[in-house]
Amino acid sequence: MEIVGAWIAVGLTLFMFSFLYKDNPFYKVGENLYVGITIGYFVIQLWYKTWIDKVWDVLTGQAHDRFVILIPVLIGALLLTRFVPKIAWMSRWAFAFVIGYGAGLAIPATLTTSVVIQAQATAKPLVTMPDRSPGAAKATENAKAAYDKAKEGAAKEDEKIRAARYRYEQSRSVSEYTFLTAYRDFTTIVIFVGVFCVLFYFFFSIEHRGPVRAFSRVGILFLMIYFGASYGNTVMGRLSLLYGRVLDLKDYSRQMYGFATPVILVLMIAVLAALHVKNKGKDEGHAA
């Protein structure tokens, strides 16, 4: 069974990769299988996990308030009236419910999490004053003692030493003005300048000239850095997925899986080459 699974996994992976060459029958088979299986699986999961679990089992259960579930079912069913033009207007009730509920839920929460709290964090002091309280000094002392203790007996680059040093430096940066505190302040200033300049860039009520233009140019730089970071992360993410597939192809090329990868690869190349020759002959025939 494991060998069959390996052959299917390798086959479908190579089918999808074959699109790099060009659209071809192997890719079409892989694509259609993927769409079909995904939809089939999704429908079955929804049927059992949503309809049976959350509706049917409740209705056929013993709870005295079981029929309340019919209200959301009815609202959901109204969406289906879109398919009958004469009564399609009834679907608006369902949409009104969904939009009203969604907006009511999302607007206050989004304002709080993405605007108010973010604005508060941006407006914090640009320079941190050390916390001179005895509590902070005591915390630093304890962290130093823990760091010293971790250094005794452990290997030089042990994770425990690294963790203890990290905690000590964090603690010290609160009670004293250290390099780490300065770094944090620098970050706060960068965030402040970034927010300020990017807001200027998106401020279209006045013409971008003079100092406004200078601020908006700096805003563009910040946006560029953001896009660059996003692109770098995207490359990393996509290549992780590619690496995962290549690793499987490597594993399944072993004898215990019947050399699945090389065999399927060679067969595919042979078929694609044959198709290419056949189509070329056809094209030349048409041209003649």
Partner: peptide, 24 residues
Amino acid sequence: TAVMATDYYQYLATRQVVGIIGGV
């Protein structure tokens, strides 16, 4: 995932999230 990591760093400074493990 790495693709998403940059979008959620803003929630770190506000302590809405305690930390982020981004991608591989």
